[in-house]
Computed example of a mutant assay.
Amino acid sequence: MTDLTGKRIAFLATNGFEDSELTSPWAAVTNAGAAALMIAPEGDSIEGKNGHTQDVDELSASANADSFDALVLPGGVVNADHLRMDEASIAFAKAFFEASKPVGVICHGSWLLIEAGVVDGRTITSYPSLKTDLKNAGAEWVDEEVVVDQGLVSSRTPDDLPAFNAKVIEEIAEGAHAGQHA
């Protein structure tokens, strides 16, 4: 496993996230030595659709992408739908692309990236129901377990988590990617 000691990873989510899509990557990056912090639009804690509760470390309105080495966006329909309506969360996610930092996104999480305007010209996968949304936003959608495009790591469902976690760790270890842009 690649060593991520000293790296700070932001996880951006809100209530209704897909539990395993938060807990599995969180465990993977922390087991690799990184510090994981939960960023959310509001509240002291958030709850996944299956009951996992996660303490919030910082609100998206005050969070600064400069303080982090990478971003992970868990899925979950309710989570993703609420985040894409939150301007601070959109701006926070977009800032990682502007700084060429690695971003991992799974399932419905890419709805936020569509709102941030960062998928045009990118190759990405997602939960299949987002295929048309991503294509309409200018992305090339593919049906693969994990896709890496210049620091952008994407996967479809919880079944893809082992491959997603491995690639997220690899991309974070590599650092900034010149092709990662807003």
Rank of each mutant, 00 (worst) to 15 (best):
Y127A: 13
G109D: 04
I46A: 11
D55Q: 15
D160M: 09
Q150H: 15
L59K: 08
P74F: 12
D66L: 11
A182R: 13
D149E: 08
N79D: 14
A95S: 13
A163Q: 13
K101Y: 08
R156D: 03
N136I: 01
S155F: 04
D57L: 09
R8A: 01
T5W: 02
A93H: 07
V105R: 05
D86P: 12
L113C: 04
W111I: 03
E145Y: 09
S20F: 12
V72K: 13
A61V: 08
A88Y: 10
G51T: 11
I114Y: 13
D149Q: 08
Y127W: 05
I9V: 13
R122Q: 07
P41T: 00
P128E: 10
G75H: 12
L12R: 10
I9N: 02
A99H: 15
F11N: 09
F164M: 04
G117R: 02
A139K: 03
G75V: 14
F96G: 00
L12Y: 12
G43R: 07
T23V: 15
A40G: 00
G6V: 06
N50C: 14
N64A: 03
A70S: 05
I169F: 00
K135R: 09
G121W: 08
I46S: 06
P74G: 12
L161M: 12
V72A: 05
A173C: 04
N136S: 13
P74Y: 06
G76S: 05
R156Y: 08
P162M: 00
Y127P: 14
I169Q: 14
S89C: 09
E98W: 08
A36I: 08
E47M: 04
I39V: 11
L22I: 01
Q180T: 15
S24R: 15
W26A: 15
N136A: 09
G109V: 10
D81M: 05
E144F: 00
E140I: 13
F97E: 04
L112Y: 00
L134M: 07
S45M: 10
Y127D: 03
T23H: 13
L113I: 00
L152P: 06
T14N: 11
A63H: 14
E145T: 07
S110V: 06
S60R: 01
E115P: 12
A137H: 07
P162R: 04
K49Q: 09
N79C: 10
A182P: 12
N165Y: 14
T2H: 13
A163F: 00
D66F: 12
G175V: 01
V78P: 13
N165I: 08
D143W: 14
K167F: 04
S67E: 11
T14W: 00
G51C: 04
L73H: 08
D81R: 11
D69T: 09
K94R: 12
S20M: 12
D86E: 10
T157H: 06
L113E: 06
